[in-house]
Design a protein around this nucleic acid. Structure first.
Lengths: 357, 357
DNA sequence: GTGAAAGCGCTAACAA
DNA sequence: TTGTTAGCGCTTTCAC
């Protein structure tokens, strides 16, 4: 009683078919590309649909087909007051692009870790999504088993290090990036390098640490545990950690920092200690969101990897949609660019992505 | 043919009602809190539903009720390679919290400006959402008229400055914040203050500029147009702008910068010019996402407004859901905290929010 | 090549 | 207080 003639609000299949003097069946078939429709009627139908600005009611379609035409992104938050990592925004922007292209929608949820299991169970029981992207994987992550049990298709943004499960993932090459960055500092003559890292129960931070250690060991340097800190990516973490390290006996001459937010704190501590970045001390920031290697400290400018997170989102979404349509296809591990990897444990994968390798 | 006995996958109303020996109607009514159901059966039903882990199929429910139970967030992107403003992530996290509380889902889309109109029309025609949050309003914004025409409920995150339309909005108090920050720099003795701002066709940047000018004028200072720059919030903008300003005859002794990303560039330019922040030059960064007033430059620490963006998201979502349920209710303009305002042009509003004022 | 009719899982008149 | 029935707008057998 509220739509109707006010304006040509939301025409539906019934109206459209009546206008055309055809059955709903035929119109539906014409629009969905079924072969048995004659070319002439198909043309007529398509034209009328376009002119009438017809869009199938997504809810009705979902009910009839059983497909939600929606992908869920569940972002874990440690606490309700936690600042959201900008990496998610960038990744989700990329994924969204792919979904639009294939007629899917993107559903977003933020869940505290303790609610995560019930969140997954709930959205699948409600028929809200056809698949999900798993964010912030941990070195060992129970979500893999959970999602397999539920039977919900998924792709991991990142990797789970300690597992025998087979699964699809896409990731930045964190280990290699941190190895490179560390090597750069070593080449500049630094021997006391501090790593200010994210929580190492999360894979990304763990892999970064491994890369850091790789470089030290390859250069015959020993690592100093008091120069490696790991915590949530906050300004406070950066400030407190750097302050403590700078006051210690083995004060570092260089910092390698995970995320610009942390770096804000580190910088603050450095200037408070009366030191000047680029003169007394070097800092490299690695942040996928900006994808920004800070070259303060006379460090040569890195190739910008800007937007690689977005690209990862695009690819993850493609991988997931493909998996939903053709569950038997799995990608092999492959290097997409020096900083982007995707893969899974089994099977062949007909990827057009190979051009990117 | 694919669910059934494998595991107790997704029980539906029919099964549940058969198990209970009741009609679907009664079960539905019991679960939806209709008063005519006897307390004893309601208890029985609720127990069985819980044990059977029953969740109504959202798509079927939507089709039957005509409510999508979903709110859309459409994030405008200038170009596909643009970095997403972290403010969105924080705001959306807040809104999401409210939606979960009321059984709504959050649908996310990124749209280039040229596609925005068709995006809105499309999601409403598909019955994908019950309402939307409008992000990044411009000083003059055609979306207001569009959404009214379509009849889609909405709340604006920010304000449209040049309009006579009535609409609901929630916003940071950008003008006041920038006035305060500028005053602080003036109090420190600065007379040549540079404003490195976002695009002033966007309301937030325009209002910040007004606040900046407010402070200058109140202190009898004249503004220098060559010390006010306005562009996309990128590192490049900050770097180029600051470089140029520092090289000019009227080089600033202080910078007021919109967003930390821009500030990365500004900092770079400053250190390249051989100047030291906190000694030769002062910098204040205002960024709602971190909500961080940088105190480099010996500027006293501001009260942290961290998470106010998230809070804005929570409130915007509450306002929208209320509007969807009771369209006749509109909030009056009100100050929630010194930095958070919400409002609309008409009517009474029974807000429990008053405690926050 | 096209149409009639049943059904997806739920809600909501209308009866009883 | 409970049940019967008719949709919501689409897809999909099955006949023609």
């Amino acid at each position: 009683m509220r739509n109707a003639e006010v304006s040509c609000q939301a025409m539906n299949l019934k109206q459209l078919s009546e206008n055309l003097g055809l059955s709903q069946t035929t119109v539906s078939r014409a629009l969905n590309g079924y072969p048995e429709v004659s070319e002439s009627t198909r043309k007529r139908v398509e034209l009328a649909a376009q002119q009438g600005n017809y869009r199938p009611n997504m809810r009705a379609m979902s009910l009839a087909t059983g497909k939600a035409m929606t992908i869920g992104h569940i972002i874990p938050v440690a606490t309700q007051s936690d600042v959201v990592n900008p990496v998610f925004a960038e990744f989700v922007a990329g994924a969204s692009q792919t979904y639009s292209q294939f007629g899917y929608e993107l559903m977003l949820r933020f869940a505290e870790s303790k609610d995560e299991e019930s969140t997954y169970r709930s959205i699948v029981a409600k028929h809200a999504v056809d698949g999900v992207i798993v964010h912030s994987p941990m070195r060992e992550d129970s979500r893999l088993a959970l999602l397999k049990e539920i039977g919900l298709p998924f792709v991991v943004h990142g990797r789970v290090c300690d597992t025998n499960e087979e699964y699809n993932w896409i990731d930045m090459n964190n280990r290699s990036a941190f190895k490179q960055a560390t090597q750069l500092l070593i080449d500049l003559g630094h021997k006391n390098i501090a790593l200010v890292n994210g929580q190492e129960s999360l894979s990304f931070a763990w892999l970064r640490r491994l890369g850091f250690l790789d470089a030290l060991h390859e250069n015959g340097l020993t690592h100093n545990p008091s120069l490696m800190a790991s915590d949530e990516l906050t300004e406070t973490h950066g400030y407190q950690t750097a302050t403590k390290m700078l006051a210690s006996d083995h004060a570092p001459s260089a910092f390698l920092v995970s995320s610009y937010v942390v770096a804000l704190g580190v910088r603050h501590a450095i200037s408070q200690a009366g030191l000047a970045i680029g003169k007394d001390i070097s800092v490299i920031i690695h942040d996928d969101a900006l994808s920004y290697f800070d070259n303060s400290g006379a460090v040569p400018q890195f190739t910008s990897t800007r937007s690689s997170v977005r690209e990862a989102g695009i690819l993850a979404a493609e991988m997931l949609l493909k998996q939903i349509d053709e569950p038997e296809l799995y990608p092999q591990t492959k290097l997409l660019k020096s900083h982007l990897i995707m893969g899974s444990s089994t099977g062949p994968y007909r990827a057009q992505l190979s051009t990117l390798v």
